[in-house]
Design a protein around this nucleic acid. Structure first.
Lengths: 181, 181
DNA sequence: GAGCGCATGTAAAGGGTTACATGATTCT
DNA sequence: AGAATCATGTAACCCTTTACATGCGCTC
């Protein structure tokens, strides 16, 4: 999946993800957290505190601007032109294709288990992927129908990529188990 | 792909990966680095220095033992019984299914690009996945034929999982592009 | 003797996780 | 009045990355 030379990564994607979400509309840290939990968390998990810290950095760097302060200390941020330029540059850039995924690492060490344990592990994995697929399909159904800027289509495409990935993993778990049985 | 409650992760997998590799046979830091670069780096990248630091921790914790010191300062480590117990516990444990993969994050922000740029991006992505598949197939062909403990079968299975993943991503890139064109 | 591959480290900085901490508003 | 949800933060710790640093052994 990756030659050694392909493996340089930046690891600063939360930063870009926040800018990207703010390109849709002004939002608060809490809104951003919810957006992550409902769609992005699967590919880029975050803790609420990390968002608030990053938001502070971003506004110091003038990539976002504090817009309004609402009820309960709510702070709404807007993307600045510089911020928009930065996300755009990131999207256009060559991606870092490094995959960080524990189950794929674990596969390499499955041989340490007894045959029946391996089978049980693969069964659990398959069930997990199928369950995640169901969850994703639910999320997809709850996407808005109106799509003025194309961001909903992009979320749809993202969900489809996720489904493809989960399907591939579920198939793999099934096939591998069949070979063992 | 993941409900919020599923998202707790340990992030200490390098540790386990090293122990897992040492379960196959005693190795030096350099050997471990090479093993990473030839198969594991795609799912868990490392820098050489991180390996050496981790090896030091691991031997302090008596999970591995310094075996022999060879030419050019080569240090070969062996897994201790405690170390073997630790890997085993890790493999049996429920996996952390959090996926860290930049392209899947980026998909959500593709709408920021012009239509022709989106198409170009997806073309590049597809080409990348296909190229990676070729590389992986080459790696698979170079796997040893003898497999005394089952570790080669596991590496084979890992490569197949990777292939499935890459195929799914390549398909996705193609399908999504077709929709745009 | 120049260059490559083997072989191992240290230190600082950055990013993410865990634990700690607080307070307002709405609903029952 | 209590619970749930909204809403934002700080600090310590851990892991990873980047940069720096060194030296042996073989081959051409």
């Amino acid at each position: 999946m990756s030659q050694a030379s392909f493996c340089y990564h930046s690891y600063v994607s939360l930063h870009h993800a926040l800018l990207g979400l703010l390109a849709e509309e002004p939002m608060s840290g809490y809104d951003l957290l919810k957006r992550f939990q409902h769609s992005l968390e699967a590919v880029w998990p975050v803790r609420h505190n990390q968002i608030y810290v990053e938001l502070k950095h971003l506004s110091e760097r003038k990539l976002i601007r504090l817009d309004t302060t609402g009820a309960r200390g709510r702070k709404v941020y807007t993307l600045t032109p510089q911020g928009r330029a930065e996300v755009l540059a990131w999207v256009q850039q060559e991606s870092d294709h490094t995959l960080h995924f524990e189950p794929m690492l674990k596969i390499n060490f499955l041989w340490l288990l007894k045959s029946n344990e391996q089978i049980a592990y693969l069964k659990r994995e398959e069930a997990h992927y199928k369950q995640q697929m169901d969850w994703l399909k639910t999320q997809m159904r709850s996407l808005p129908n109106v799509d003025p800027d194309g961001s909903i289509a992009a979320r749809q495409a993202a969900a489809e990529a996720g489904l493809g990935f989960l399907q591939a993993m579920a198939n793999w778990a099934l096939q591998t188990r069949k070979k063992l049985e």
